[in-house]
């Protein structure tokens, strides 16, 4: 019998057995009471409406207008014109491909290394608190600052990375990391991995605290190896947290232009642009219409992806249940 079925069956009995007194105390819903509730809800509703939904709607309508800051005397409605401009841009295919590469190549090492660090930090040892603080520190740094730091580290002539590689005898002349499309993409992904590992370490460590020690003790009694305990106790117990953390991180990385913008500005020759850095580029050009259209496109892509991801997750859970 599944856990869900048990809960459903238990509910009516609980309700039936509930004392009558609380229900009697429940005040009748009156118009006056409705107004009071409304009055309490109003500030929050107004706040969300004014600061969240109004800007979203106002911004979204720009996507269907000729909204260019260089000439605001003609902001006529142009239907899907801005979307057509995006799809017709020769860089769009490369940028979409880069975005997928940026997300996948960043998230896999971030997850694996973050998981390993979390497992390591779960053990009790001397100065564990200090190590935790040191490892979590990058998360407190601005993405742009990290980008600037890595930009100088990857500098072909004066960068510390080439210097170290030369001193180790691995290269003879400096590699122009940010000058070649493939190495530039590699460099920005390395910076992002360094930054994002911390996030996974924090989230997974928090999830690991919730795994009862009794399960490991039982596993140890049964003679399970550490690897088996990892795959049959740890991961299944925190799988929901892991899945949601990965989803959250995918959305964040997708929407995270800071490092690329600071390191390469999307270059060389637009070869490291992802959708959000391209959006900044278009905004700087003053074409808010096209940038808004791109923003809506990002929302649509992420909504569709999240829906499929959550459906797949639910499907998997049902199978395992």
């Amino acid at each position: 019998m599944s856990r869900q079925q048990t809960t459903l069956k238990e509910r009516p009995s609980t309700r039936a057995g509930a004392p009558a007194a609380p229900r009697a105390r429940r005040r009748q819903f009156t118009t006056r009471r409705g107004f009071v509730i409304l009055a309490f809800m109003l500030p929050a509703a107004v706040f969300v409406g004014v600061f969240t939904y109004y800007p979203m709607i106002a911004g979204s309508q720009m996507a269907f207008r000729n909204w260019n800051l260089t000439n605001l005397t003609d902001t006529s409605w142009i239907g899907l014109g801005n979307f057509e401009k995006i799809l017709a841009d020769p860089s769009f295919g490369t940028i979409l491909g880069n975005t997928v590469l940026w997300v996948v190549a960043s998230i896999v090492p971030q997850f694996v290394i973050g998981f390993a660090i979390a497992l390591w930090l779960r053990r009790r040892f001397r100065f564990r608190g200090l190590y935790q603080a040191l490892i979590f520190f990058p998360w407190a740094i601005s993405g742009f600052l990290i980008g600037i730091l890595f930009r100088w580290m990857f500098n072909g002539e004066f960068g510390v990375i080439n210097d170290v590689l030369k001193k180790l005898g691995l290269i003879e002349t400096g590699i122009p990391w940010l000058a070649e499309p493939s190495s530039a993409m590699f460099a920005v992904i390395v910076a992002n991995v360094w930054y994002g590992v911390t996030f996974f370490a924090i989230m997974i460590l928090a999830a690991l605290q919730s795994v009862p020690d009794e399960l490991y003790e039982a596993g140890a009694l049964d003679g399970a190896s550490k690897a088996r305990m990892l795959f049959q106790i740890t991961i299944p117990t925190i799988s929901t947290t892991l899945a949601l953390t990965v989803l959250l991180r995918i959305i964040w990385i997708f929407n995270f232009p800071d490092i690329i913008w600071a390191m390469t500005g999307g270059g060389p020759a637009n070869q490291t642009h992802i959708i959000t850095t391209w959006m900044i580029n278009i905004t700087q050009r003053g074409d808010y219409g096209m940038a808004s259209a791109l923003g809506l496109l990002v929302v649509a892509i992420l909504l569709i992806f999240s829906a499929f991801y959550l459906m797949a997750l639910r499907g998997k859970k049902e199978v395992t249940a």
């Binding site: 072909g156 000058a179 270059g267």
Partner: peptide
């Protein structure tokens, strides 16, 4: 020119000259 100057903007150019390289 330095190969990495493909990506050089204002700060890198000025740095390249002021650091003597």
């Amino acid at each position: 020119s330095p190969p990495s100057s493909v990506a050089w903007g204002y700060p890198e150019m000025v740095e390249g000259f002021t650091n003597g390289s």
